[in-house]
Structures are given as structure tokens and as C-alpha cells.
């Protein structure tokens, strides 16, 4: 029996009106490993991640999470069909998502942000939710900031709260969409460190990032997207090592001055 990947995408197409943003993506994301999704701006990385999180419905193709189809499945004659809405929630609950813009809720404290879904979705009591949320904040080093509102936290701290908020729901898979791209350089480190320790716990992670150093050292697989196509995939050593695909050369020229040259 073959091992079922955490995420399995087959023939995923996404069109916005006339614009074909994803042109048929086949992708396997292995369990318990970090997969980094690289590619130039506008290549469709966010769109792919958003399809996996079901924030967008893909136009064609099938996405499976832990072997279970998300939103669309195959009918008896192998045709693509929409699955009942009730089937979506349990599959979706396996996924946690972290956004470039943090997206913390400004009217809740750090603790409130983390505890919210524990109370409203998981139906934990206030005190249970409080304890769980505190434990998650502690893991990202922010237990002392639990009572602060997002406006009172630095960008790096906000992103760590956002990670804690996603982790509190015990997802099987974590998606990160450029988690450090809106942070000052001196704040990216604290977020990447949290992600590194999360990777060490064996969390399955699919990470869109321009931090080549992080990708090269933490990922077990690199996927390179270009114009909505999956151009190259493989181990970091193979993708970054020579000889390189010319598009990757070009891409590295743009991003390598981020202090990552020594890691490759």
C-alpha cells in the first residue's frame, strides 16, 4: 500500500474570468515534512495555497487532504463533481493557515484571538479555552503578551500569535503564505524560528516564502511555480544545486542578496 500524502493535488486549474492563474497543478505534499513553494510574484503561489485552504474553489482538478477529497471529488464515471457542503468542514478542519498580513482580529487580545475558535467552534468552556490558548501562546514565546491587543504588538509578535491561533485547533497541516514578507528584516528571524521548531515537531507544512535560506535548510522538498505551472520540484540540493534550471537562476539572482548565499 502506498503512503497517502498529506496533500494531493491533481490537475488543479484556477481561472479568474479569462485569466488562467493555475494551469493544471499536480502536487504531492508529504506528511511530517516541510515543502516550500517558491516562484516569482504573480506565479500563482497564493492562489494554489488558497485553493488548498478552500478559500478559493479551483475551476478544475481535485485536491485531497489525507486522502479525503476537498470540495470536489470523482463521481462513479470518473467525472468531477461537487461534494455536499457538509463534507467540506471536517476536511478543512485539518488545515491551519497563516497569512502574510497576519489577519488578527483587532478587537480581541492575543489570548482572545487564540481562544475564539476554541470556544465558538470547538465548544470548550471559557477556562479550558483560556488554558489551551495560554499554552499555545507560550509555545510561540508570547505568554507574557496574552493580554495585549494586536495594535500593541510588533509585526513579528502578531504573526506568532496568528501561528498560535492556527495551532490551537490542532491542524494536521499548516499552510503559510509569505509569513515574513510584511515584516522588517530584524523581525523575520523570530517568526522563522517558531516555524523551525514547529517543523521539528513533525508538523506537515506547505510554506510559500522568499526566504531561500529557510527553504534550503528546513524544507525537504522545493516546488517552483512559474506562470501557474509547476516548473521544477525536488530536494533543495537538486533544485538549487548546479546545473540549475535557467528560471531558477534568474529567480535566485533576484532573491539571493537576502543573505542566503552561504546556505546554498
Amino acid at each position: 500500500m502506498s503512503i497517502v500524502p498529506a496533500i494531493r493535488a491533481r490537475g488543479v486549474v484556477k481561472r479568474f474570468a479569462d485569466l488562467e492563474v493555475l494551469t493544471g497543478i499536480d502536487l504531492d505534499v508529504a506528511r511530517g515534512a516541510v515543502t516550500c513553494l517558491l516562484g516569482p510574484s504573480g506565479s500563482g503561489k497564493s492562489t494554489l495555497l488558497r485553493c488548498v485552504a478552500f478559500l478559493e474553489e479551483c475551476t478544475d482538478g481535485i485536491i485531497e487532504i489525507d486522502g479525503e477529497p476537498l470540495g470536489f471529488g470523482l463521481g462513479p464515471n470518473g467525472e468531477r463533481m461537487r461534494l455536499p457542503a457538509s463534507s467540506i468542514r471536517p476536511v478543512r478542519s485539518k488545515i491551519g493557515m497563516v497569512f502574510q498580513q497576519f489577519n488578527l482580529w483587532p478587537h480581541m487580545t492575543a489570548l482572545g484571538n487564540v481562544a475564539e475558535a476554541l470556544v465558538t467552534v470547538r465548544r470548550l468552556s471559557r477556562s479550558e479555552a483560556h488554558d489551551r490558548a495560554m499554552a499555545e501562546l507560550d509555545k510561540v514565546g508570547l505568554a507574557k503578551r496574552a493580554g495585549h491587543y494586536p495594535s500593541e504588538l510588533s509585526g513579528g509578535q502578531q504573526q506568532r500569535v496568528a501561528i498560535a491561533r492556527a495551532l490551537a485547533l490542532e491542524p494536521r497541516i499548516m499552510l503559510f503564505d509569505e509569513p515574513t514578507s510584511s515584516l522588517d528584516p530584524e523581525l523575520t528571524g523570530e517568526v522563522l524560528n517558531v516555524m523551525r521548531s514547529l517543523a521539528e515537531t513533525g508538523m506537515t507544512m506547505l510554506v510559500v516564502t522568499h526566504e531561500i535560506g529557510f527553504a534550503a535548510s528546513v524544507a525537504s522538498k522545493i516546488v517552483f511555480l512559474d506562470h501557474g505551472r509547476l516548473l521544477v520540484e525536488g530536494a533543495p540540493g537538486d533544485v538549487f544545486g548546479k546545473p540549475r534550471h535557467p528560471r531558477i537562476d534568474q529567480f535566485l539572482d533576484t532573491y539571493l542578496d537576502r543573505g542566503a548565499a552561504g546556505l546554498i
Binding site: 478559500l55 478543512r92 488545515i95 482580529w105 465558538t120 467552534v121 485547533l169
Partner: peptide, 14 residues
């Protein structure tokens, strides 16, 4: 209201 705030709610299951 930023769309992302609503999407964040959606991804945690609200």
C-alpha cells in the same frame, strides 16, 4: 473590514 479578517475566521472554522 479587511477581507483577510473574514478569511482568518473561515479558516479556523467559524
Amino acid at each position: 473590514i479587511p477581507r483577510g479578517h473574514v478569511e482568518a475566521a473561515e479558516t479556523v472554522g467559524l
